[in-house]
Design a protein around this nucleic acid. Structure first.
Lengths: 175, 175
DNA sequence: CCGAACTGTTCCTTTTAACGAACGTTCTAT
DNA sequence: ATAGAACGTTCGTTAAAAGGAACAGTTCGG
């Protein structure tokens, strides 16, 4: 997780507002905040209060984190953006990630612990993924499960790819 | 999405800090905020700035939304909490959800559009899910894909269940 | 026994986010 | 044309969040 970008929040805020047909004045009134406040936020200046963000997120019907860590954000150095969604506390241990890959990028991943497996579901775009040498091509809606205790990779061609990724350590069940 | 609870944030903030072995002074210093600020927040008073929350989330290594919309929060009326993670823009259309079910609850879902399928990955707990009459039992790390154009359900027994859920509308590919 | 280093809290001060009114625009209707 | 009502902006004021120092309560070691 990197640095906070105020400009991104502003852009994303405005995008969401327009997409839902709100005017700035309307949204401000509905959220119960001054429109001068909202105006400043959309311009990228300002450092909103949790209360303010919350009120806006409710009106825009977005899961909150979406507002500040926008999905359509410039990515990391390797063209891949990864967010930890949740971590299971049971056995086997499961880590859930949201991942987004720019076009024409390849991300190589080190082997995880022995017996580890990965499951992924493609949300949009196309992707080639799996153990090195045994990758599969996926398109939106497809799912894939493969052994992750060996080097594996994710590769895009000329499209973006967004996916959910779960890493299952120390597999116990065999279903 | 309901109202903002400041107390919950404070509790959750403190829980995370202690779980990672930080002292209040240490965390405040590492995050670059005044410890008086952090102290007040943990007590449930105050309405932190986005910058403040961000700095804390980075240090605590949590995906941000986790801080303010804690995972261990009381759930909806039916004992099920659902958050929209992402929506694909391609065809087929894919909606990605994070879902958490309390013990001993059953959630029935209406059929989606014809040809729709669902894929789910269990992060923790155990769950029985699938088309009504053809459900399967899952434990942490398991995945399941089933036709969702008929009534289907999710049922927990004596454990919580957390899972990722993808709804794929109007299936085009058949892989 | 007592200073030193730490814990977390409570003040007071400074900074600044939020408010509310006024502003210049644009568009519609009378 | 012109009053009206929207739009989004900019400004000065006010309320409050963040900073900083002093505080009492612990846990050390000499």
């Amino acid at each position: 997780m990197d640095k906070l970008s105020l400009g991104t929040l502003g852009q994303h805020l405005q995008t969401l507002r327009l997409a839902q047909g709100w005017s700035l004045s309307q949204l401000a009134a509905a959220a119960g905040i001054a429109k001068s406040n909202l105006s400043r936020l959309e311009q990228g200046n300002g450092n909103p209060t949790l209360d303010t963000i919350w009120r806006l997120a409710v009106q825009l019907k977005v899961p909150f984190g979406t507002l500040v860590a926008p999905i359509a954000v410039p990515l990391g150095e390797d063209g891949v953006e990864v967010r930890l969604l949740d971590q299971g506390k049971d056995h086997p241990q499961v880590d859930a990630y949201w991942m987004r890959c720019a076009p024409h990028t390849t991300r190589r991943a080190e082997p995880h612990t022995p017996g580890a497996r990965e499951s992924l579901t493609l949300i949009s775009g196309t992707l080639e993924a799996g153990p090195e040498g045994a990758t599969k091509r996926l398109s939106a809606g497809d799912t894939l499960t493969f052994a992750a205790d060996c080097p594996h990779l994710y590769r895009t061609r000329d499209t973006w790819a967004t996916l959910l990724l779960s890493v299952v350590y120390h597999e116990e069940t065999t279903s």
